[in-house]
């Protein structure tokens, strides 16, 4: 275990060092950190070990595809290619002079970036793990779980009993596939993000946006009469308050998934920034003596991040389940009865 950790941190240190040498000249921790937590067109594992990912562009309906290595010349300097140029992690259309056009419309960048590639890895892992588990359930039905099965079964049962059943109620079964998928998708990607050379996928706002959007759509489409009743005619609130209440409730529909989006993004990104900052201290002080201290703190932070990886997956799943529960909950209609009697 100890050996593994030493190995892990030696890798992390190499990556940090690589960042410095790649940028060259004076070490700017801000740039290094931003570079590490942002998306990229190449996957930089270590100095010299670089995976050039494919660039896919949709330019006014026309699909253009080439390797991102074309943007670099032999001296590892960024050069324009086929009328496109890469600048600050974005691809721009260039004019005749090779200058990027800032306000060019109609260019959609659908490249397989580092985050997309990392997501594919996580998906392969998810398929490998859970298809394997499903196969072992089929192979020995009704038997005690074995191996990987016995590790994941308590987690699956926890999600079913403590998250879905407890928050959604009798209709929980419908939401289980989604809840299990987001939980393991977020957890696996959080952990992959902590690996040396890993991408900051769950700390990317586009990813958390899509996940939150899914929760929003499922919530809205599974909302029953009582759910919409509470939004457009909140029981127990006087009618003249409706002009205030309805917008507030409508905004509430969106703030819930928005908070999901920001929470996951901010937590994961913050963890990455802290660990990278601790390593940056070595290069800021330009002293090997700071190394042990940095490593000690970073080790502590890494353990904390391992916990946060699980915690954030749990929170996202739990809150999604709570929103679904609110949408399908059958309220007791005391107010409506009173209303009917008054007529």
């Amino acid at each position: 275990m100890k050996k593994l950790l030493v190995l892990l941190f030696s890798f992390l240190t190499i990556t940090a060092y690589a960042a410095e040498s790649a940028e060259g000249g004076e070490f700017r921790p801000g740039d290094m950190i931003t570079h590490h937590i942002a998306d990229d067109y190449t996957w930089h594992f270590a100095d010299g070990v670089v995976l050039y990912l494919p660039v896919i562009l949709v330019d006014n309906g026309e699909v253009v595809s080439f390797s991102s290595s074309n943007f670099y010349n032999e001296a590892h300097e960024v050069v324009p290619y086929k009328g496109y140029v890469m600048e600050h992690g974005h691809i721009y259309k260039t004019n005749a002079a090779g200058e990027p056009i800032a306000d060019y419309a109609g260019l959609y960048d659908l490249s397989i970036t580092k985050n997309v590639a990392s997501m594919f890895v996580s998906v392969a892992l998810l398929f490998f793990v859970f298809f394997g588990i499903a196969a072992s359930y089929k192979k020995n039905p009704g038997k005690a779980p074995r191996g990987m099965q016995s590790f994941f079964e308590p987690i699956i049962i926890f999600i079913r009993d403590e998250i879905a059943k407890a928050n959604i109620g009798p209709k929980y079964e419908r939401y289980m596939p989604y809840l299990l998928t987001i939980f393991f998708f977020i957890w696996f990607n959080n952990l992959l993000g902590l690996m040396p050379g890993g991408a900051n996928l769950t700390g990317n706002i586009a990813v958390t946006l899509v996940l939150a959007l899914m929760t929003l759509l499922i919530t809205v489409f599974s909302g029953n009469k009582s759910y919409w009743g509470h939004i457009f005619a909140t029981p127990g609130v006087p009618k003249w308050l409706a002009p205030i209440m309805i917008p507030v409730e409508l905004i509430g529909i969106f703030t819930k998934p928005f908070s999901l989006m920001v929470r996951l993004f901010a937590n994961i990104t913050a963890g990455h920034i802290i660990i990278l900052s601790l390593f940056s201290l070595i290069f800021i002080f330009q002293s090997i003596a700071v190394g042990p201290l940095s490593v000690a703190f970073a080790t502590f932070m890494n353990f904390l991040e391992l916990f946060v990886a699980l915690l954030q997956a749990y929170i996202f799943t739990l809150l999604s389940a709570m929103y679904f529960g609110g949408a399908v909950e059958e309220h007791e209609h005391h107010d409506e009865h009173a209303h009917a009697e008054a007529h």
Partner: peptide, 13 residues
């Protein structure tokens, strides 16, 4: 740049 979702990643995700 950190809080601007990229269209490519949204699509692939």
């Amino acid at each position: 740049q950190l809080v601007t979702p990229g269209i490519g990643l949204i699509f692939w995700q």
